[in-house]
Design a protein around this nucleic acid. Sequence first.
RNA 1: GCCGUUGUGGCGAAAUCGGCAGACGCAAGGGACUUAAAAUCCCUCGACCCAAAAGUCGUACCGGUUCAAGUCCGGUCAGCGGCACCA
Length: 809
Amino acid sequence: MDKIAVEKKWNKRWTEQKVYSFNEKDVANKHYVLEMFSYPSGSKLHIGHWYNYSLTDSYARYQILKGKNVFQPMGFDAFGLPAENYAIKTGVHPQDSTLHNIEVMEEQLKNIGAMFDWDHEIKTCMPDYYKWTQWIFGELYKHGLAYRKKAPVNWCPKCNTVLANEQVVGGLCERCDSQVVKKDLTQWFFKITDYAEELLQCLDTLDWPEKTKAMQRNWIGKSVGGEIQFQLENGQGSFKVFTTRADTLFGCTYVVLAPEHALVDVITTDEHKAEVQAYKDEVAKTTEIERLSTAKEKTGVFTGAYAINPINGQKVEVWIGDYVLATYGTGAVMGVPSHDERDFKFAQKHNLGIIRVIKGATEDVDDTLPFCDDGVLVASGEFDGLTSEQARNAIVDKLATMGKGEKKVNYRLRDWLVSRQRYWGAPIPIIYCPHCGEVLDENLPVELPYDVEFTPDGTSPLAKHEKFIHDVVCPKCGAPATREADTLDTFVCSSWYFLRYPDSKNSQQAFNTEWIDKMLPVDKYVGGAEHACMHLLYARFFTKALRDMGYLHFDEPFKSLVHQGIILGPDGNRMSKSHGNVVSPDEYVGTYGSDVFRCYMAFGFRYIEGGPWSDDGIKAINKWLDRVERYVLSAYQDYPTTTDFGTEEQQLNRVRHLTIKAVDSDYNEFSFNTAVARMMELVNAIAKYDQQPTKNAQLYRDTVDDLLVLLCPLAPHIAEELWQQTGHQGSVVVQKFPAFDESATKASQVEMLVQFNSRPKVRINVDATLNAQQLQELVLKDPKVQELLQGATPKKVIAIPGRLVNIIV
RNA sequence: GCCGUUGUGGCGAAAUCGGCAGACGCAAGGGACUUAAAAUCCCUCGACCCAAAAGUCGUACCGGUUCAAGUCCGGUCAGCGGCACCA
């Protein structure tokens, strides 16, 4: 078979006949399969795309065979920096390059032979899409979930834009690895922190990889504790500290404020002013990375001020130190050197007191090290004898009655910074009016102008576009106004695309509530694990926010999530141009066709693991598919036939049904490698049966028919071609998954393993229906067993029908 | 340091509720067919021991539970991913 020609033929025919279109009338039976959409970069689809898209498509095809009404759309995450950077380098406008790349990629995606529903395609850079991205911004704004504030933000000097916390990896820009610096800027934020608790709680309800859920939990970073108020000694006011260890409060010997803390300048005494200012200057100069390094020494200086520990009235020194972060908790911590690693180091260095107030269960107290575990309180007045856990509550409760403390939960999650000082993104629909201030523009879309000078210089390219900025009046008062020049982070665009797909042509709304309530949540979402704390978190936030506004009525967008593994280069490194280990799928697809390539990827890797690329087995898969062809055609040739159903027939039928059962669950679990292995076993059984001089044609043909249907998710074109060549009506891709007949898998006689002292010794054929008692009796009577027993009486016999018999002597 | 995850032949990997470890393939070796090659088909293929039969060892390491452990329990080590001065 000329596999390439066959692929072209069927691909074309399926598209013409719309074999794959979703039936909107049968929405109750829908199965929404979604692959993370791709970024239309200039380079072609790589192995990773193929691995993700082709095998998830196999899962979708399997669902069709199982009678599901599958919705599997595709689109493009088309805004973003790479197109803009490409434009800066080459002068080709981002819109032109993006739209061109999309065309090329559409063609490539079609060649995979996947059944994407192109009628619902989305391109996020088109006004008919970003109009609704802007609308969602407006809704968030109206509900207090989008706001503007001046804050120290992450700035990438190379990309010339701010970044979200999630886009800073180890102090470096996620995209270009430049060192990120802090800048004080007024920026737009989404209030994702309002949903921190729900985002955390709902993780338990999701069928997601444990790893991903753990990463989100970690990122949200909930910590339960208390806020404790310290009065300043000389009546200059008070400040709060956040702690998870209120039980150690009696051990507090000093407090530390973040150098940026507002109170620092107020409380510093004259004699310490110079030193404090010098320290603050020093801190401002160090980079974020240096400052956050755990290896760095715990530096700090005394302010000269004192505060009162509210639980015991002790006077403690107030220090500043850069290990206290202004952006977490209250920007102030209490120092308990006896029970905290960092405080201990800090106290040692600066000669501060160390008072031990928690005793461990064991008595081997080592006072040269901090004791950081829970224990029992000592030297803590009325709280002596309480466990740490009891004391945490008791102490905060006591403080609460004094008005000096309260229980408090803190999250590490920060609000999502969405402004970007770049061109190629959705404009933020905000107008600034000299009289009314910040006004939401509801006249959408706010179109992104084409003729923009986008060479980055640290200011937003749109700011330099006179017409865009100034050709606007205030919607409230009609006065001449100006537009917001920043654009939205592309992650905003991708935070709701799965809601748009089912209703992609709706020009009146972002989506119809009633309709997407039926179509969502996504039943199976497949994409890379690298999105754990960005896209997957943002999309959940959007879903919950839109739910609370009444635009939809479900809690989570992605019910079940699968991460495909990563295909590494042959050298075991991540494929990249710099490693020079990039493998292109094109050559393989050109030589063997997409079915062979897909089957090879299916068989060669555990789907969720991935691994280093090697093409050692691709020829074998090609041969195997040829073998399938030979036997399928052989079954339909003329040969001496019989209607008998003897041992050989039973054998074949048995393997056939075991294969049906196994492949069914394998597809369902994305275990494509074992699915192929099972089908290989079936083909081996068929090959053996083919040797029979006289064959049961009915059984033989039914069996190869089943094989073609089982194979069709992984090799749709080849299966279809053979289906047609053997004279079937209709397309194989919409057949019913073969029915499993359990009785066919049961032999009347089974080979039973007999062990002596747990070591395999003898095999005897027994009736399959015997119960444990009968089995034991029969086995003990067996001559071979008798011989091994040599007259001894077994101490114990374990007989398990269907498994084994173990004789202990 | 914390969280998660993975350790099985020369290689990719299988193994249901604890029940014959290595299915299915690749590579390798041997053979059939062929003038030859390709294609196809058959056999061997964890290690040790051995003429063979039999036997011993073997799922990262140490220990435990069990008639029986890749699988369960306790501990250790290594790889991978994430977080990390978060109070």
